[in-house]
Design a protein around this nucleic acid. Structure first.
Lengths: 218, 218
DNA sequence: TTTTATTTTTAGCCTAGCCTAAAAAAATAT
DNA sequence: ATATTTTTTTAGGCTAGGCTAAAAATAAAA
C-alpha cells in the first residue's frame, strides 16, 4: 500500500510521460505537483527504492511496470468515482474533480469491484476520458484536438484536455458538450481562432478553447 | 478543516465520553486509539489550541461544543457511507467498517448532502446505530442490552455494541439480525448465559453475546 | 501519614514530506 | 574551448504525528 503523496506522484509521472517519453524531468514534475524541485528529488528517491520508478541522477524518471500498474489503478478509481458523482449524485461535470482526487485514494479492492458493477462498467468518465478496466487496460480512442482539424472537417466532441471548472463552465455556457458534432467553417491564421458550426449555430472560438477540446473524426 | 488524525481523536473522545462523563483519561484514549499515552498528550494539546477540546493537565479531556459538532459530522459521514456500502454496493454488515473509516474523512459538503439524498435520508446505519441529521441531531433510541432483560421479557433486536467482523459473523451464523424478535426463556445465574427464543427456535447464548446486543422493548 | 503504585507529562528522538540556500552537473552561448 | 545559464541534487531545517525513557503528579495502600 502506498501513501497518498506517493500515489499522486505516480499519477503525475504517468500523465507527463506522454510529453516526456525519454524521462520526466524533475522541474516538470515539480510544476505538475505544485512543489519544489528539491522535494521532487526526495520523493523520486523513495519511489525508486520501492521499485515504482527507474531513476538515474540528472536523467529524469520513468515508471516501472509496477509503478505504471499502480498509477493506472489510481486513475481507474478516480474516473469511476467521477462517474458515480455525476450519474448517481447529480454533480455537474465541472464539480467532480476535487472530490474524486480524494476518493481515488480509498483502499478497498472490493469497493472498486462493486462500484464498477454498480455503475454498469462504464468505459468513459464524464470528461470523455477512458476508464481502464480491472486489469489496467486502457481503450485509447483516436481523438485529435479541435485545433488540429482542417478547414471543412468535422467530428464529434469526445473529451477535454483541461478539466478546470473555468473551462468546463465556458463549455456549458456555450452549449458545447460531449457527443455534439462540430465542423470547422473558418480558420484565422493570425490568432488561430476558428469559426465552428455547433447544432446549426455558428460560434467563434479562440485557440485556447480549440486546443483543449478533443474531437473524434470518424 | 482538520487532519485525519485529529478527526479520529475527536470521534474516539466522543465515544468515550459516555463512559467517562467527567473527562476522558489519557490512558483510555491511548487504548482506544491504539497508541501511547505520550502521543495522546501531544495530540490533546493540539486539539486544545484549536478549541476543539477543554483540557487541564492531569484532568482528562472533554469535547468543546465545536469539537462535538465536528465529531458528530464525522460519525454522520461514517454511517451514511456504511448504508451506501450495504444498500447500494451489496456489502455485508461485517465488511463495511474499515472502508467507512476511510470514506468518513472525505471533505465535501455537497457530497454528503447528495449522498444522504441518494440513500433516502436513512435514520439508522446497518448496525442499527442512529445517523445524526445534517444539523447534528441524534435520535437516541430507548434500547437496552439483551443481558439486561429479565426472565420472560422480550423485544426487537435493534443494534450491536461490538461491530467486529467476528461478532457480526457469529450473529449471521445464528440467524440473529436487526429486526428479529427475541424473548428470554431461561437465565443461568452462574455464568449469565441465557436461553432465548428466536424465530420459534431455542438458542443458548453466552453472556458475552447478550451483553453486546441491543434490544428495544416496546 | 508515609510509602508504593499508577497515571500523566516532559524531554528528546524518528520518519514522511515539505522547505530554502548552496553546490554540482548539464546545457547553452560566446 | 571556455564562460554562463539552467537544471538538478545535496545539506540542513521545519512540522505532524508517532515513539521510548525518565520525571512529575495523583491515587492507593500500609
Amino acid at each position: 500500500m502506498f501513501s497518498l503523496s506517493e500515489e499522486n506522484y505516480l499519477k503525475a509521472i504517468f500523465h507527463l510521460e506522454r510529453a516526456y517519453p525519454t524521462g520526466v524531468s524533475t522541474n516538470a514534475l515539480a510544476e505538475e505537483m505544485s512543489t519544489k524541485a528539491s522535494s521532487v528529488t526526495d520523493m523520486i528517491k523513495r519511489l525508486s527504492e520501492k521499485k515504482l520508478v527507474a531513476y538515474k541522477k540528472y536523467q529524469g524518471v520513468k515508471l516501472s511496470e509496477f509503478g505504471r500498474e499502480t498509477a493506472v489503478e489510481v486513475i481507474r478509481k478516480h474516473r469511476l468515482w467521477e462517474v458515480f458523482l455525476v450519474d448517481k449524485l447529480g454533480f455537474a461535470w465541472d464539480e467532480v474533480h476535487e472530490v474524486a482526487e480524494q476518493l481515488e485514494h480509498i483502499k478497498s479492492e472490493k469497493l472498486i469491484i462493486e462500484l464498477d458493477k454498480f455503475l454498469g462498467h462504464p468505459k468513459k468518465d464524464p470528461h470523455g476520458d477512458p476508464i481502464p478496466d480491472a486489469k489496467g487496460n486502457f481503450v485509447f480512442s483516436d481523438k485529435v484536438l479541435l485545433s488540429e482539424l482542417k478547414l471543412g472537417e468535422s467530428g464529434i466532441c469526445v473529451g477535454v484536455k483541461d478539466s478546470s471548472t473555468e473551462f468546463l463552465q465556458y463549455l456549458d455556457k456555450n452549449d458545447i458538450a460531449l457527443g455534439k458534432e462540430i465542423s470547422v467553417l473558418e480558420k484565422e491564421s493570425f490568432d488561430h481562432s476558428m469559426l465552428i458550426n455547433l447544432n446549426g449555430r455558428e460560434l467563434k472560438i479562440s485557440n485556447i478553447i480549440s486546443s483543449n477540446l478533443f474531437i473524434k473524426t470518424s
